[in-house]
Design a protein around this nucleic acid. Structure first.
Lengths: 329, 329
DNA sequence: CATCAGCATTGGATCGTTCAAGGCGGCGAG
DNA sequence: CTCGCCGCCTTGAACGATCCAATGCTGATG
């Protein structure tokens, strides 16, 4: 339709210079009230939108945030990222940022992608999900002073970089207390093999809570890979014990679902609580610990915009999950 | 570390002019073999990456594709978009494009977002998911000649714009044939209220297949909103019939899961097949019709790059889903 | 030997924005 | 009265790439 509307068009229309229009947008306080209003009127009248490419070329900032999207590994856990991503996009929008996606197989390729994105698109910041011990990605980014936030704690050095995370231990502690309050005494835990930050954290919440009430002995602790079949297997093993537990707390919904199915098949009276409150849990009526993903995403964006604006807020945030009760416990 | 690497840096390093470097990148055939090689060596040696902002300003193309991410409505169906998005990002990457996310509440706001994205970021193209009758979004984009592809047919006018879709009718037909081959004669369908393109399409596959074998009379057809509780209700109603069906085909996994649970609770021998092959279906062992989401995404990107390069391929693609068999049928 | 075609290469202009520097009127201080 | 300063605005230059027109070079031809 109409010709391209640039800052010059607006300037002509408002009878001022280009720079004044630019100032209205970027430093309104140095422009006189009525001039500012006149420029704003011209902007809306013409439907002007600042060209990001041109702005970016001059300032080196793109107002773009990169987020990795992973292949849905499990299928069950995929929805977690999905919800997080949605929250991220929405909050970023509100702050004038946009979310750019990328994929990568393996850390090395991911780092190459950083390089690419930074070089070609001048990305402002990165959001990483799923951190692990000795993560090479955060090291690379930190070394180059690229602003980034992780959703997930750096498990080695808590102060290494800004992060947002959900307090897994608090979640399992809450679940454990709920089971205790319901009269359970033998409460087992089915978790991942020790060594993963997330898994160990969640296990710790259960363990300390059980220890607090002196029930540590009546608390079988199992380690297994993630999966429904694995959950079934562990539940069967637990039920075959001399003094089987009356409740099981699982580190994931996959394991919890398996355990729940195994208990039902064996007609055993076993309370089960999972973790992540995935759609699967909701669908089959499984109680689960729910992460505040929307809030986590919002905090990530807040931290990033803070970083980019040079503000210094406390760059580490631990959020509390909540327990969602359904039929299974 | 090193200073910013621009096209001039590369030119100096390779002992040629800026334009020659540009030609190597954009029109390699007009540059002499050995010159080209020398330039390429300089590029890799310096780690040069073309600045997209500068390129975009001159050419007006951003190599960016926008995709909407929706709030996970159901929770169960969210994973479909998730997998599609992953495929999209991966294929786009391979073609040198990047995926930009956006959210919007309602069509009006979404159209405003188009305007914004086009004005500010010079987006090259859009991918829309979930089309409906009389979609105002596609009309808006078409009117402005913005390149776009929809994942989902335009249900009013098949030739309106390029699209990729999965043949829902073929999927339900395949599922119906499977049930027939397994000896079922009374096969019910639980679908959404007539009027939604997707739902009607899926219903049609079942109906025509049943009609082909003259079993149309023995085929109860139910209409209901989506949801697990709704699926349970419909299954109970079906089982209470004088001549209850021995199998149920559902338009979604949510409904199928509900039906499957109701049948189990009633200890009824009822085969159930769902649609979308969501993680929930996989988790509980529900047979389902699976959409080739990765391929659909790849085709979307192919179509778009074709459009952008001015190629004229057939811009309409109907893909075949496949039946995934588990315990439930 | 002069001319010209064919091709690779060069310099300058350009996209839309922001930064740096400067102009200009008015006001208070010396 | 003059000077300096402040607030507000304008002008020229720059970011890094591509496009366009012009130039240099080589070799073949009249």
């Amino acid at each position: 339709m109409g010709e391209k509307v640039t800052i010059a068009t607006v300037a002509r229309h408002a009878q001022v210079s280009r720079q004044t229009v630019s100032n209205v947008l970027n430093a309104p306080h140095i422009v006189r009230e009525d001039t500012r209003r006149r420029v704003h009127e011209a902007i809306t009248a013409l439907g002007y939108r600042a060209n990001q490419a041109a702005r970016q070329m001059r300032t080196g900032r793109s107002r773009l945030i990169a987020v990795r999207i992973e292949p849905t590994r499990d299928g069950i856990n995929g929805s977690v990222l999905d919800r997080f991503l949605h929250g991220l996009t929405e909050t970023a929008d509100a702050s004038g940022y946009r979310v750019l996606l990328y994929t990568a197989r393996g850390d090395e390729q991911e780092i190459a992608t950083y390089d690419d994105l930074l070089g070609a698109y001048d990305l402002d910041a990165f959001v990483l999900t799923g951190t692990k011990h000795g993560d090479p990605r955060t090291a690379w980014l930190a070394e180059r002073q690229v602003p980034f936030v992780t959703f997930g704690r750096p498990w080695d050095t808590p102060e290494a970089h800004p992060w947002v995370d959900v307090d897994g231990a608090a979640g399992t502690a809450q679940a454990t207390r709920h089971l205790l309050a319901a009269g359970h005494r033998r409460i087992a835990f089915v978790g991942w093999p020790a060594g993963s930050g997330v898994g160990d954290d969640r296990r710790a919440g259960w363990r300390t809570t059980m220890a607090e009430v002196g029930l540590h002995d009546a608390a079988p602790d199992r380690e297994t890979e993630d999966g429904i079949a694995e959950g079934q297997r562990e539940a069967r093993a637990l039920l075959a014990l001399d003094a089987p537990p009356t409740a099981v707390l699982c580190v994931s919904d996959s394991l919890a679902l398996g355990a729940w199915q195994a208990a039902r098949d064996a007609a055993a009276d076993l309370a089960v609580i999972g973790f992540d409150d995935t759609p699967v849990a909701a669908a089959v009526g499984l109680s689960s610990v729910s992460q505040p993903l929307g809030e986590a995403a919002a905090r990530c964006v807040e931290l990033l915009t803070g970083l980019l604006d040079g503000q210094r807020r406390d760059p580490r945030l631990l959020l509390n999950p909540s327990l969602v009760l359904r039929h299974s416990a």
